[in-house]
Amino acid sequence: MSAVFVEDLTMRYRGHTALDGVGLEFQENSIHGLLGRNGAGKTTLMRILTGQEFATSGRVEVFGQPPRENSAVLSRVCFIRESLKYPTNFKVREALAAAAIACDAWDAAFAERLVRDFALPAHRPLKKLSRGQLSAVGIIIGLASRAPLTLFDEPYLGLDAVARQVFYDRLLEDFAEHPRTIVLSTHLIDEVADLLEHVVLIDAGRVVIDADADELRGQAVSVAGSAEAVSAYAQGVAPLHRSELAGRLRVALPRRPARPADGVSVEPLSLQDLIVFSTSQGDRK
């Protein structure tokens, strides 16, 4: 069953189209990656899904109902975004207490454990936290909310590599015990590539890729070798990216050609490279 269903969704601001006929589905109990460049429309989409923004046109359903001003739907949703404004005079513990009131499935013990894992000073006012510590507060709220639909929009701005790994580990552990729908929007694609089960790539307000992550990882390849050998091997497949140096050619192909790879090396293309090469500003030479 779909946690999220979006059809022909358009969002226009004055003189700017943020989303242009977007259609997608997020299946329940799965980890989805919502990827794209800055300004691609990811945050706008998530704001519409959580009732914080009003779409210009199109159909949006969360757990089968429109989310806008719908308490039955929104009580099952938690949206943690990088730019989330916290009441500055709240202490960490008060922010968690507020989240506990608002979120029906809040797990206080899990929240306590995460506070320790991220070494957060629970009695310090939020306004005195570093950027990374504030991000940790958002991550704790998002995870401990156990909301059936949890959206993270660049949740770890300022977090160091160790803290990010803590986030990935706790997310996976908790997801295994309490499956739910997670939507993760991030630019650190390589770091989250192994977490994702489904990937949606948005570019300039349109869905460019909407596919199973394993399928994507298996399909796209990087081919390197002499210019003649690579051209011969890649014939008939439009490359996503092409670079040439000293007679050696490297191309990124969206799928593996159905012919023997003679004289060329073929490697799976990383999810990050696939995303970079698939966006409109990527190098398509």
Binding site: G51, L74, L84, N89
Partner: peptide, 20 residues
Amino acid sequence: LWLINQLFPFCMAMSVTRGA
């Protein structure tokens, strides 16, 4: 001013509706 500019965005992130 505090309620509207600080607590309201936080509540919305916690999926409290505008009406509520």
